[in-house]
Each structure stands twice: as structure tokens, then as C-alpha cells.
């Protein structure tokens, strides 16, 4: 119970940081801190914590989003499923490089899930989406990975 409460607290914290960053740098891309936290939870602990955080985080993000309720939750849960596959076949617990690879792969998958949804709902083209949303989002997220990993190490791995 204590762990679940801590995870919920951290999810709220990452959501708040993401929103604050978006308000300041709304013209640029904001990193997906919450998804990185979910991935790290899945890599270091049991996947049930990842699924729990995907549901809670998805619900929180959906409540702030103006698109259809459930998009973020479905995207997060699908990302956790991909994470489960990558953890089983690709990830090496003692390799930092494989951790970053898994992180990049899941972040990319999550962005593609969003693209598929918005492609069906809006008049968007892949090249533009990739250049202006997907790629900058992945790069900015990976750049902020050390900070997220530091918070994760301080709060959760202890």
C-alpha cells in the first residue's frame, strides 16, 4: 500500500512538472516525464507497478486533455505491453545502453500510438507529425532522462 501511495505521489509530481514546463515552453516540445517514470518502474520492479502507474497517469493526463477520454491511458497501457516484450527479449539489467534503447523504443511506440489515433481524427500527415511532434518529443525526453532517473533513484530505488 505504501509503495502504491508513493507511486501515485510521484505520478502527480511528474504530471505537475510536465504541465508547468508546457506553460513555460508551450511553443517548444515538452518531454514525456510520466512515461519515462512508468518505463523505469517496469524495468526495475514488477510490471504490476507499471500497469498501475499507466492507469493512474493516463487518467490524470486524460482529465487535463481535450481529446477523447482514454486516449492517454490506452497509449500508456500499450506502451507497458511493449515494455513487457522488450524487457523479456532485449533488456539487460546491468547495461545502461540497453536501458536507454528500451526507453527510446517505448517512447517512440507511445508517440506512434498517439499518431494513429490523431491520424484517424484529424487532417495530419506523417512527415509533418514525425518532424514536428514525434522526433522532438523523443529527443527532448531522452535528454531529460538523467534527471528523471535521478529522482527515481532517490525516491523509489532506496
Amino acid at each position: 500500500m505504501k509503495k502504491y501511495l508513493l507511486i501515485t505521489g510521484l505520478i502527480v509530481l511528474f504530471c505537475a512538472i510536465e504541465s508547468a514546463l508546457f506553460n513555460v515552453f508551450s511553443e517548444w516540445v515538452v518531454p514525456n516525464l510520466l512515461l519515462m517514470f512508468i518505463i523505469l518502474l517496469g524495468l526495475f520492479f514488477d510490471l504490476k507497478y507499471s500497469i498501475f502507474s499507466a492507469i493512474i497517469g493516463g487518467l490524470i493526463k486524460d482529465s487535463f486533455s481535450s481529446s477523447v477520454i482514454g486516449v492517454n491511458m490506452v497509449a500508456f497501457l500499450s506502451s507497458v505491453f511493449i515494455l513487457f516484450l522488450l524487457r523479456k527479449y532485449v533488456y539487460h539489467p546491468h547495461s545502461g545502453l540497453s536501458r536507454i534503447f528500451v526507453l527510446a523504443a517505448v517512447l517512440t511506440a507511445n508517440e506512434f500510438i498517439h499518431f494513429v489515433f490523431y491520424y484517424s481524427a484529424k487532417d495530419i500527415v506523417f512527415a509533418e507529425s514525425f518532424k514536428f511532434v514525434i522526433l522532438p518529443q523523443i529527443i527532448s525526453s531522452i535528454m531529460l532522462y538523467p534527471a528523471v532517473f535521478y529522482i527515481f533513484k532517490k525516491c523509489v530505488l532506496r
Partner: peptide, 12 residues
């Protein structure tokens, strides 16, 4: 309010 996503440009 503002939608915190690059996919949507929506304000409240």
C-alpha cells in the same frame, strides 16, 4: 486553460 499536448491546439 490549455491542452497540454502538441497534437491539439485547444484553449479553455
Amino acid at each position: 486553460g490549455r491542452d497540454p499536448s502538441r497534437w491539439n491546439s485547444i484553449i479553455i
